[in-house]
């Protein structure tokens, strides 16, 4: 009888640990989602886009197709592009 109890005990322990890990993961997941929503709400929605590198890259490509990047005039002397000071 003692022999048959031992594996059962082990199973119970593993199951409890699994449950705990799942619970913590769910809690963490929820916290992250909540935190993101909180940032968006408290810090305004600007940061949703401006903190997303991938989105910024795609947006900048999109904008540059319509309005190309304006560099210094090609007619400016090379020395002047460095700044006079």
């Amino acid at each position: 009888m003692g022999k048959s109890l031992l594996p059962e005990k082990k199973t119970n322990f593993t199951a409890k640990r699994l449950m705990a890990v799942l619970a913590v993961s769910a809690l963490l997941g929820l916290t992250t989602v909540y935190a993101k929503a909180e940032i968006a709400e408290a810090k305004s929605e600007c940061v949703v886009c401006h903190t997303d590198m991938k989105r910024m890259i795609l947006l900048s490509w999109e904008i540059e197709q319509v309005r190309p990047k304006l560099d210094k005039s090609a007619e400016t002397s090379p020395a002047e592009t460095l700044g006079e000071g």
């Binding site: 940032i39 810090k43 305004s44 600007c46 401006h50 590198m53 910024m56 900048s60």
Partner: peptide, 27 residues
């Protein structure tokens, strides 16, 4: 400097004192 780098906000900024101010309050 690439265009996206010019306007990308490091999320760490939001944890700073200045990051507590809503963007539209200044911009």
């Amino acid at each position: 400097m690439e265009s996206y780098e010019k306007i990308y906000v490091n999320p760490t900024f939001l944890k700073t004192k200045h990051g507590e101010i809503a963007c539209e309050a200044c911009h």
